[in-house]
Simulated scan of single mutants.
Amino acid sequence: MSRNPNAPGANGADRAIVRFDDVSMRYGRAPETLKDISLALEPGSFHFVTGASGAGKTSLLKLVFLAARPSKGLLHLFGQDVSAVPREELPFLRRRIGVVYQEFKLLDHLSVFDNTALPLRIEGRKPDTYRDDVAELLAWVGLKHRMQAMPATLAGGERQRLAIARAVVNRPEILLADEPTGNVDPDMALRILKLFVELNRLGATVLFATHDEDLVARSGMPVLHLQNGRLTAPGARP
């Protein structure tokens, strides 16, 4: 994977790949899950999203992935006002975003190789155009020897690395991770974090949601901390 030529540089918020302007979000008629969020993320940046359970971490990622819409405020992705994008064009924006879920969301009837290649097959690409690239990616995440294995035979850390491979196989510009280390031991969590750091170095803009404060502290990466749906300084009290 080559370095993203847009990662990061001058002009700050004017070059934001993700921008929230006074964004709030609610599910149905429930109280707001996110409240008055404003932020701007540069291309090629890496941020942790932290906060207690229910603070709004997953909801923030859903907005970026266009799986939900703001109830108030403006959301811009790739320089576009999402509210002005026709519904039929949203899938093309989503293809520029990769998502890694805590629960993996693998297809148990497909091999490791075929799970990884699935986004490329959905795009209509032929196997001979991606076979070598998928094999190289699986080698990079440490699964070369398990390419023909089925997900049910994989250990938890292997399943998470497979989920990461599938999320990045089409080289997304934004990579979202929702508690990707929540089901693995501390050593594997560090290994997974290193994969995300390397993907960031290759140009992906990373939002990594976690409640693992030790992992955050060891990384030294900047933090977006959510508390009761609002962005606050880490460690702040209501």
Rank of each mutant, 00 (worst) to 15 (best):
V206Q: 08
E179I: 11
V100W: 11
K72M: 09
I164L: 15
R69N: 14
D187R: 14
H145T: 13
G54N: 05
S38P: 03
R87F: 10
S2Q: 08
D128N: 06
P151A: 05
T210C: 12
M221Y: 10
Q160S: 10
L137E: 04
D187S: 11
R237N: 08
G56T: 09
H211F: 11
V206H: 07
L224E: 05
R69T: 14
G54Y: 04
N115M: 03
L63R: 07
F46W: 01
A7S: 14
D108W: 01
R237K: 13
R96E: 14
R3Q: 12
R166H: 06
N228G: 12
M150E: 06
L93S: 08
E213D: 14
F104M: 03
E136C: 02
H47R: 07
P234T: 07
E42G: 03
V23C: 06
L215R: 05
D21I: 05
G157A: 06
A55D: 03
K194D: 15
D14N: 14
L120F: 06
A167C: 08
L137Q: 01
L162H: 02
R121W: 00
T205R: 10
R26N: 14
H225T: 15
M221I: 02
Y130P: 03
A165W: 01
G203R: 09
P234F: 04
T232P: 00
R19H: 14
R69E: 15
T210V: 06
L199Q: 09
I164W: 02
L90C: 05
A163M: 07
H211P: 09
R218T: 07
K72D: 14
F92P: 00
D132C: 00
R230C: 12
D108T: 10
R87P: 02
G51Y: 01
A236E: 15
S111R: 06
Q160V: 06
L61R: 04
N200T: 08
V49S: 02
R131H: 11
P5Y: 09
V112I: 00
G220H: 08
S219T: 14
P43M: 03
Y130A: 03
P234K: 08
D214G: 05
L74R: 15
T232L: 07
R26W: 06
E173N: 10
R94P: 13
L215W: 09
R201P: 00
Q80Y: 07
G235R: 04
R15P: 05
D36H: 12
R69M: 11
G51F: 02
V85L: 13
A16S: 07
G73S: 10
E123H: 02
S53V: 06
R29W: 03
M150Y: 14
P151K: 07
E32N: 10
V223Q: 07
